[in-house]
Design a protein around this nucleic acid. Structure first.
Lengths: 342, 342
DNA sequence: CTGAAAGCGCTAACAT
DNA sequence: ATGTTAGCGCTTTCAG
């Protein structure tokens, strides 16, 4: 169990630690014979230099902190996978946290990451997605950002100039609503999301505006935010279906709620899209495995992750960074939307 | 951007670093007035002690390495969530890797984790799930395990005594097959998984044995391993449905393939469970949101994660550990299984 | 109660 | 080509 060190190698090879360090890093020429001797020892003991000691000196850990709310919602793993892919280029690896949108956990992780001297942080969800975030929580992030590069993904912090990478959720929602209108729908509802959340409020705003722009009436009763889960989608759709006057199409805050919504429709003996059209948001992998396959707005989660790392890397290299990178979402038409009955 | 150190604090407080260290750790009494002075400074500069320096000394990083093949398959995030929950008790956090079952990536991560001196490693998937693993790959893990505690989850390494936490997949499969037989099925197929994988071979073995024990015939053409993805389930079910003689029920290697299989059935204009019963394995959250809700075998993913951390902790504390902890799977009957037609 | 100093494992001048 | 040595930031004896 004892970890062996550069000294152990040096002793046995009868050279100084500097020489061992040199063969380890190829940082200066070493005689072939002594190099061979040292390499043999390294192999013999399966010696791995202590990264803690190295980092203490170099001030680099090669670690990126990834703060995200729910690893169980496939959207985040997809972003993570993109980030990981991109990070390979620069040899960075990840320290992952699961905050469940709990602000105190975010603080905790922010501190831990700072203590562990990660090279940078990618922040998703939680407080950066709040319409009205407590200034203290904002300030906390700003303080950390003074010491360590942070990029915000799909979120924002008021009065702050942290670099951000976002999907244009407004435009995405417009795409979704227009699609429904073009199919001939005039009675459209909105389901899911939390009001205090920017994702939700942006989407609802785009929803209302598009409806009005197209000369349609916005029925407030049909706007039912609640949560981001499948269960939530199911429940809200249930409510909608219990109303005397029902919409013929529904926009959902994300694919998870959309899947729940479909479930509710089917449970009521109705059919998607025949009786009611449903459109999601995110385009998680599952979206085209569900029955019926989900029409949705692609956020390019993977690309979002890659881009976040690219921006973070610029920041870490003290290069100039675009304060805002926007990815354009795309409408993906599949089976869950169709023209309304008759 | 400059990180401040214990020296900066000591200087400004006109005390020695030792004293600062004492208030930081509460490791010895400090006069109230000097303590106050120091604490004020710590707050003023938002000082966070450098964990690298600490770990260098303490030989503990508070980090657990989590090696897993596919963060995109919800089963793994569920295990991870359980692990994280349990790890909070001891203040451990996670270093995550995504190996995509690529053995060279596993090696790479094993090395990185070793260099970073993580306190322990939880290993899922990849080589530990191989029926016939290259001895070199086995040896590599064994070498690492000499230096750092490793626990294997749902896998094994031949001729090795690394502690393991596993679901009894054999028993789980028996449960699934029996359920189908009790419903009256006699024509049963098996879909998904990779042959070289122990999960798959254990399940297929249990599948065959149970069928025979119940006096039923095993039709080899109906055993179609391939992969673990939804697409794979869809394709294999497609093949099954194209056969002249078809089974009336199908066991799937996991929930993902089962969902793909349902998809294929519906695409062929048939119904689950009316025309064909389907049972999955894992009981991912999605299983009860899919239409029809999936009958499956619960692996208690969350519990698996918790247990893995518990065992790992014992190992880290050099306590005695059970070499093998087995979790009993449970049959969860939902809507995707029913008695065969007529 | 507090300070001086050694040392954790490694790298990077600076010598030789 | 190789050795010596001074840190990196922190904890921990050992003295006062």
């Amino acid at each position: 169990m004892k970890q062996i060190t550069i000294y152990d190698i040096a002793d046995e090879a009868k050279v100084s630690v500097a020489t061992v360090s040199r063969v380890l890093n190829g940082t200066a020429p070493v005689k072939v014979s002594t190099r061979a001797k040292i390499e043999a020892l390294i192999h013999k003991y399966q010696f791995q230099p202590n990264a803690l000691a190295r980092s203490l000196l170099s001030k680099e850990t090669g670690i990126i902190g990834f703060i995200q709310p729910d690893i169980t919602n496939p959207f985040f793993p997809e972003v993570f996978t993109g980030a990981e892919q991109e990070a390979r280029e620069s040899g960075h690896t990840f320290f992952l946290s699961n905050t469940i949108g709990d602000y105190s956990k975010e603080s905790e992780y922010l501190n831990i990451m700072q203590e562990k001297r990660v090279d940078g942080i990618i922040f998703l969800g939680g407080r950066i997605n709040l319409k009205d975030c407590d200034p203290c929580l904002v300030q906390e992030v700003v303080e950390h950002a003074k010491k360590i590069p942070i990029v915000l993904v799909n979120g924002n912090l008021r009065n702050t100039d942290l670099p951000r990478v976002v999907t244009d959720e407004y435009a995405g929602t417009v795409l979704a609503v227009r699609h429904l209108i073009e199919l001939g729908h005039t009675q459209i509802g909105f389901i899911g999301g939390q009001c205090q959340t920017t994702t939700t409020s942006i989407k609802i705003r785009a929803f209302r505006k598009t409806l009005r722009d197209e000369g349609l009436q916005v029925k407030e009763d049909w706007i039912l935010p609640d949560h981001f889960s499948m269960d939530s989608g199911r429940q809200q759709m249930q409510k909608l279906l219990a109303m005397s006057e029902k919409p013929t199409a529904v926009c959902c805050v994300n694919d998870y709620t959309a899947i729940g919504a479909i479930k509710a429709v089917v449970e009521n003996g109705l059919k998607v899209p025949d009786d009611i059209s449903i459109v999601g948001f995110d385009d998680i992998q599952l979206a085209h495995h569900v029955i019926p396959e989900l029409t949705t707005v692609s956020q390019q989660a993977y690309e979002l992750g890659r881009t976040a790392v690219k921006v973070l890397r610029q920041l870490m290299n003290k290069g100039k960074v675009k304060k805002l990178t926007t990815l354009e979402p795309q409408l993906v038409i599949r089976q869950s939307t169709a023209a309304p009955r008759r």
